[in-house]
Amino acid sequence: MTAVEENTSGAFDGATGHDEYLRILEAIQTGALQLLAGFPQQPSALRVQVGEVTIEAEWQVTAAPLVGAPEVAAGAVETPAAPDKPALGAVFRAPSVGVFYRSQEPGADPFVEVGDRVTAGQQIAIVEAMKLMIPVTAQTGGVITGILKEDNEPVQFDEPLFSYSPE
């Protein structure tokens, strides 16, 4: 018996139990994202328990912002240019480590294309982390000027996904 089966055995029977299980997983996802957004730098592990359900995640931290740096989660940030690279300008960033998806499902139209106008709060992509689909939303309005990652490509926390021109 796995840890998940142990934690949930007998707790979720039938359709109502399944709905309750999905509700708890959604609460865990929301809580975990809020918790991660509050850290000054990305942690290397996270353990979340809601009722009898426990989720543990560990990941390799490649580059973390300095303590006291402003928090960034799919937000609008100016990216400084390296000496040999042009400036990206304003970018929307990955809210989590995971896999970047440009559309809701395989074969569907992408959420946005270069030249599309976006509004604050509009979903522009998805990052999948441990089977959780985390929406990437525009924090401000603007026009998409570049798509910086390929569909189905791994991304790191805070990595630029789209460049845009603010409005």
Results as ranks from 00 to 15, higher is better:
87 A>W: 06
88 L>V: 03
89 G>K: 01
90 A>W: 09
91 V>R: 07
92 F>S: 01
92 F>A: 11
93 R>W: 00
93 R>M: 00
94 A>H: 01
94 A>S: 15
95 P>T: 04
95 P>Y: 03
95 P>S: 11
96 S>G: 03
96 S>C: 05
97 V>F: 11
97 V>H: 12
97 V>A: 02
98 G>V: 12
99 V>R: 12
100 F>I: 00
101 Y>W: 14
102 R>D: 10
103 S>E: 07
104 Q>G: 11
104 Q>C: 03
107 G>F: 14
109 D>L: 12
109 D>K: 14
110 P>C: 05
110 P>L: 04
110 P>E: 00
110 P>M: 00
111 F>A: 06
112 V>C: 14
112 V>L: 04
112 V>S: 13
112 V>A: 10
113 E>C: 04
113 E>M: 06
113 E>F: 06
114 V>S: 07
116 D>C: 10
117 R>I: 11
117 R>M: 08
118 V>H: 04
118 V>G: 02
118 V>F: 09
118 V>C: 07
118 V>W: 03
119 T>F: 05
120 A>V: 10
120 A>F: 08
121 G>T: 07
121 G>C: 13
121 G>V: 14
126 I>R: 03
126 I>Y: 04
126 I>Q: 00
127 V>I: 10
131 K>N: 03
132 L>C: 07
132 L>W: 14
134 I>Y: 05
134 I>M: 01
135 P>Q: 07
136 V>G: 09
136 V>S: 02
137 T>L: 06
138 A>W: 01
138 A>R: 06
138 A>D: 04
138 A>T: 09
139 Q>T: 15
139 Q>C: 09
139 Q>K: 14
140 T>H: 13
140 T>C: 09
141 G>E: 11
141 G>N: 06
143 V>T: 14
143 V>E: 10
144 I>E: 01
144 I>R: 00
144 I>N: 02
144 I>C: 09
144 I>K: 00
145 T>Q: 04
145 T>V: 09
146 G>W: 05
147 I>A: 08
147 I>H: 04
148 L>T: 03
150 E>I: 04
150 E>D: 15
150 E>W: 09
150 E>N: 14
